[in-house]
Amino acid sequence: MVLSELDRELIAEIQGGLPLVARPYAAIANRLGMTEETLMARLRELQSDGLIKRMGVVVKHRALGYQANAMVVWDIPDEDVERVGALLAAETCVTLCYQRPRRLPQWPYNLFCMIHGRERNAVLRRLAQIVEFHGLQQLPHSVLFSGRSFKQRGAHYVAREDSLPRSAHG
């Protein structure tokens, strides 16, 4: 799918967040000089094409009391990653689950999932239950709790104003 200049303007306009008004899409459309209907139709297309996953909230886990943030990483035979990834992703405490490349010899793990909990022991107990329940005892894994968080912002994918015209395919 090819993004038009208007798409890029639209994405730049809403990437910082939706206006908190009764008709947010009308407010954005007004700023972009288009109708609310046209804008909503395009947003629905961007969603059905998968460019936008959904409109929603980004929760600050720590501020909400989820102090323990564990990245649990697994070294899984490549042919078994699909199966185990799907099992882990279905667990309610798992908020992200990705396959990533190993970086040998320093990093042997190829499946990453995030588990959030109110404190570390609760996360470790939950993980132990998951390992037991799914019979994952033979798969090497490691738990990396987070310490300090230095920077947390939504990723910005489209630069604003000055770089819009030249950056379409550059």
Binding site: Q15, G16, G50, V59
Partner: peptide, 26 residues
């Protein structure tokens, strides 16, 4: 949002679908 319990309210993009890149680095 003001109390920073939520960091943002808006679209969740799929960076790769938009031609962008998102990578976890260590």
């Amino acid at each position: 949002l003001d109390d920073k319990l939520l960091s943002r309210f808006g679209p969740m993009y799929n960076a790769e679908s938009m031609g962008g890149a998102l990578s976890l680095c260590a």
